[in-house]
């Protein structure tokens, strides 16, 4: 029997290998597409990396971009642990941003931390409510949560468009967006001179809390048992309905928080379509992180930097940005396949 330290290393390798291989494979396949488009893939990837990490400013933008991904991804990872397939992140995030905007514009003037906290709180509540609605439809009417969350995404995004056309819209701006929010509600900058905002720390905290909640609390234990074996959970007296509702509320709240941070820390206003892609990509991130809150962090960073780098790649070598979605989609398929092959061998 090998010494203990070596065994731990082997376990770590086994956990890390599938996502890393999936990412490499996705880059490889995508490279073929770049060649087909008549460009040099190595040059394209280099300019992508340069665009992502080329300066402190770029790194700050990438970190900001990864923040909503990490927050939403942690919630989705907890859901998936309990086999609750919440793919409603998009709508929950959008409504979180909407609620934060509404609170920031309508609350009585308050000093900075209080105004910001109230707006963030509004985002959490709205996201949780939207997820709770889907969970309620699931529990009361038996509509699978995949369809309930999915259809509510469309409704949620349309609510944002509707509100921006009406009450919350900026008159005469010509764009579907809200007026600039009062500065007291903005998230502070973390590093002067860059765009890096305090939301990054909130995401880090959420990752840590998610990790502890999943592995060190009775709540997390219930989620894991439910995911591993429904009969075992029933035998242990765990109520699937209560677990489903609570994990959905938690995950919706995190998505709503992500939306609020996006509004209060990046745009300083609500812009139509600001949530686009966040919710679905967060599912990919949760999977890429092996449904482990701690590993969701690097996965979120990967997606964040991928997206900020892609803009530079398009400018520098003319490779269109939708390539990023190809990399994301392929990574997801490969990770899912690897997870499927090794299913049943994972730690509960």
């Amino acid at each position: 029997m090998p010494p203990a330290s070596q065994r731990v290393d082997l376990a770590a390798v086994r956990a890390l290998a599938p996502p890393l291989l999936a990412v490499l494979l996705a880059f490889g396949v995508t490279g073929i597409l770049i060649v087909a488009a008549g460009k040099n893939p190595l040059l394209a990837y280099w300019s992508l990396a340069h665009g992502a990490f080329g300066s402190w400013d770029r790194i700050a933008v990438g970190l900001n971009r990864a923040t909503p991904y990490a927050l939403t991804g942690v919630g989705i990872a907890l859901c998936f642990r309990a086999r609750v397939i919440n793919i409603g992140g998009e709508g929950q995030l959008a409504l979180g941003g909407l609620a934060a905007t509404w609170v920031a514009l309508h609350m009585v003037p308050a000093p900075r931390p209080i105004a910001t906290l109230c707006a963030l709180g509004g985002g959490v509540l709205a996201g949780a409510a939207w997820a709770g609605l889907a969970a309620g439809i699931r529990l009361k009417r038996g509509v699978h949560e995949v369809l309930a969350t999915l259809l509510l995404n469309f409704v949620g995004l349309l609510i944002v468009s509707e509100v921006l056309q009406g009450d919350l819209g900026e008159p005469g701006s010509g764009f579907p967006q809200s007026p600039l929010l009062p500065a007291a509600s903005w998230l502070g900058r973390l590093v002067r001179g860059t765009d890096l905002h305090v939301g990054v720390l909130i995401a880090l905290a959420a990752v840590a809390v998610g990790h502890v909640a999943l592995w060190r609390t009775p709540f997390g234990f219930r989620l894991r048992i439910l995911g591993a074996s429904a009969p075992a959970a029933a035998y242990a007296g765990i109520s699937p309905a209560r677990a489903l509702m609570s994990v959905m509320l938690l995950s919706g709240g995190l998505a709503g928080l992500a939306g609020a941070i996006e509004v209060l820390g990046v745009h300083y206003r609500l812009i139509d379509g600001f949530a686009h892609g966040f919710g679905f990509n967060a599912v990919a991130i949760a999977l890429l992180g092996g449904l482990n809150p701690l590993a969701v962090l690097p996965a979120g960073l990967f997606f964040g930097f991928l997206e900020t780098g892609a803009v530079a790649m398009q400018r520098a070598v003319g490779v269109p940005t939708p390539l990023v979605a190809v990399i994301q989609g392929l990574t997801m398929v490969f990770v899912l396949s690897a997870m499927g092959l090794t299913a049943g061998r994972r730690r509960v």
Binding site: L33, F280, A284, P322, V324, A325, G329, M332, V333, L336
Partner: peptide, 14 residues
């Protein structure tokens, strides 16, 4: 289900 979602993301990008 999530593979289906991945296919959708991939198709939009591709």
């Amino acid at each position: 289900m999530v593979t289906g979602l991945a296919v959708n993301i991939l198709a939009v990008g591709l």
